[in-house]
Amino acid sequence: MKSTDASNRTDRVNAPDAAKRSATMKGSARMKRALPSVLLHAALILGAVLTLTPLGWMVAASFMPTGEANSFPPRFLPSQPTLTHYVDLFTRTHLARNFLNSAFVSILATLLSVTFNGMAGYAFAKLRFGGRDKIFRLLTLALVVPGQVGMLPLFLLLRQMGFVNTYVGVLVPFLASVLGIFLIRQYVLGVPDELLDAARVDGAGEFQLFLRVVVPVIKPILVTLAAFTFLSAWNDFLWPLIILSDGGKYTLPVALANLTGEHVQDTELMMAGSVLTVLPALLVFLMFQRAYVRGIMAGSVKQ
C-alpha cells in the first residue's frame, strides 16, 4: 500500500517533465523509460541466479550418480537422476534418527519459548509489579554480551546437574530469551488497556484474561516468535556440538558436520544430507514468511 502511494506521488512530480519530452520525441522517451527498467530487472535476475546457484547445485548434485559431482567440466544437472543417495542416507547412516532428534528438539524449544517469553513479555508490557523497569533495563544488558562468555560455565553447570548429552541440555539456550521477551512486550504495548480492563470488570482473573483475551489478540507475534525459535533451534550448531557427545543424540547439523569427516569424498551423499537439513528450514520459512519478516522489522525499528 505504502509503496504504491509513494510511487504515485513521485510520478506526479515527474509528470510535466515527462509530458514535455513525450510531446517532442515520443519514441526515444519510451526508450529512456524502458532502458532503466531492463537494466534494473537484469540486475535483479542476475542477483537471483547468484543467490540460488549454490542451493540449486546442492539439489542437483544430490540426484547425480556417484562421482558425477566431481567431474570436469562441472555438471549443473544430473545425467541420470537417481535417488540412491537418499536411500543411502536412511540405510547407511543414522541421519533419519538425527532428523527426528532435530525435529523433536526444535518443536519443544518452540513451545517452551513461546510459553515462557509470551507470558513474561505480556507482564512486562501490561502488568504492574515492583522493580519492573529496573529488571527490564538489566535485561537489555544481555543483548551486547556474546553468548560464548557464559557458554563454558553453563556447560560445567549442566555437567554438575547431569544434563550433558541430554535433550534438556540442548534445549537450555532456547527456553527463555531476552530478545523473545522484547519482541512480545513491544507488540503487547500496542494492545489497548480498555480491552483488558473490560475483561477485568467482567470478573476475569489474570490468567483467564491472558488465555482468553490476550493470547488471541497477540497471536501474530506469538507465531513470529515461534518461527524464529524453530529456525534458530533447527540451525544451531555450536551449542549442540558442545553439549552432545553421543551420535544417537546428535541434531542434524552436528551429525552432518560429523559425516563430512567420514564421507568427504562422497559428494553426492553429502549433498543429499544437506538437502535433508536445509529443506525443512526453507519450508518453515516459506510457510511463515510474513510472520518471520515481521519479527525482523520489529527488531530493527526499535533502535
Binding site: 542477483g47 537471483a48 543467490t51 540460488l52 549454490p54 542451493l55 547445485w57 546442492m58 548434485a61 559431482a69 566431481n70 567431474s71 570436469f72 562441472p74 529456525l231 533447527w234 540451525n235 550448531f237 542434524l252 547439523p253 552436528v254 552432518l256 558436520a257 563430512t260 559428494t267 553429502m270 549433498m271 544430507g273 544437506s274 537439513t277 536445509v278 528450514a281 526453507l282 518453515v284 520459512f285 518471520y292 519478516v293
Partner: peptide, 25 residues
C-alpha cells in the same frame, strides 16, 4: 529468493560451498 540463504542451515551450506570452492571440480 534473496532472503532464502538466511534461513538455511549454516553447517549444510558451508559443506555445499566447500565443494563449490573445489580447485578442480
Amino acid at each position: 529468493i534473496y532472503f532464502a540463504p538466511v534461513v538455511t542451515t549454516l553447517v549444510a551450506v558451508a559443506i555445499v560451498w566447500r565443494y563449490l570452492y573445489h580447485p578442480k571440480y
